[in-house]
Write a protein that binds this DNA or RNA. Structure first.
Length: 254
DNA sequence: AAAATACTCAACCGCTTGGGT
DNA sequence: CACCCAAGCGGTTGAGTATTT
């Protein structure tokens, strides 16, 4: 279904992701966060470009990504949002917890576009001219709602594009915290059991040697160069605290 | 049963945006 | 103000799978 893996002329791997790569990326991001996507693959032991890693994480590995069939409600919501927002897939995705922009975009083109067209045709037949002005009023109200976002609202990165957007973050953190009820697994990698991508068995197997075998080379690099020094200097602390201190802060705010 | 066609979706590519200097 | 760079976004591609002929 996906392009077969291959290496480009720069030695960067492209195409389908292997389970091992998924595990490496997942483990790294869950441990350290994504402090810099461009540099991340080096430290995570991946021969991918940062862009590819980011995409894989956002669309597939993120713990809060909901997979599987769309419900009727989701379909209708997407159609409605698409009427309002157009092809602003990331904005639409922000209103559908657990769904990614890429997934919604695909779903739209394969399922919903046709249906929306049919709906439009049938509604055009049904809609009485006097109804149009009402629709316009509603539409204007929606616009003004959108415009009424406070000037001091968080930046675009948080509002639109954060993997922990307001609607998804609560479930994400609650999932994390629910795991904290049980004896915490080592190194804060506690999301895998719920993740359909890798079975707990395969991950246990993987995690057993994660910090030793596959990473030996990378760990050496890791220890000798940037991350630890960055950590010591506090340069990448946001992502470390992301899973520890910031969760406490998050709960305090809640 | 085989070939053709349609469907699906992960991944890539190029452009835009926004922050930093 | 101009430039650079990382991140994000949306369009497109391509290959596996399902369905039809």
């Amino acid at each position: 279904m996906v392009k077969a893996p291959y290496y480009d002329k720069n030695g960067v791997k492209k195409g389908a992701w292997s389970l091992e790569e998924d595990n490496k990326l997942r483990a790294y991001v869950q441990r350290y966060g994504y402090w810099n996507w461009r540099e991340l693959p080096k430290f995570a032991g991946l021969s991918r470009c940062g862009k590819s890693c980011r995409l894989r994480w956002m669309n597939y590995l993120r713990p809060d990504v909901k997979r599987g069939k769309y419900t009727k409600e989701e379909d209708e919501k997407i159609i409605k949002l698409h009427q309002e927002l157009g092809n602003k897939w990331s904005k639409i995705a922000a209103k559908l917890p657990g769904r990614t922009d890429n997934e919604i975009k695909n779903h739209w083109h394969t399922h919903l576009k046709k249906r929306a067209k049919e709906n439009q045709v049938s509604s055009e037949v049904k809609v009485h001219p006097s109804d149009i002005s009402q629709c316009e009023t509603i539409s204007r109200n929606r616009d003004s709602e959108a415009d009424s976002v406070p000037a001091n609202a968080p930046s675009r990165h948080i509002l639109e594009s954060s993997p922990l957007s307001p609607e998804t973050s609560s479930s994400y953190f609650s999932t994390l915290s629910s795991h904290h009820q049980a004896p915490p697994p080592p190194s804060g990698i506690n999301q895998i059991a719920e993740d359909g991508v890798a079975s707990s068995e395969t991950f246990d197997e993987f995690i057993g040697d994660f910090w030793t075998e596959p990473f030996v080379a990378d760990n050496t690099f890791f220890q000798n160069s940037c991350p630890l020094s960055l950590l010591n200097r506090g340069l990448i602390s946001p992502c470390v605290s992301y899973y520890d201190d910031d969760i406490d802060l998050f709960y305090q705010v809640m």
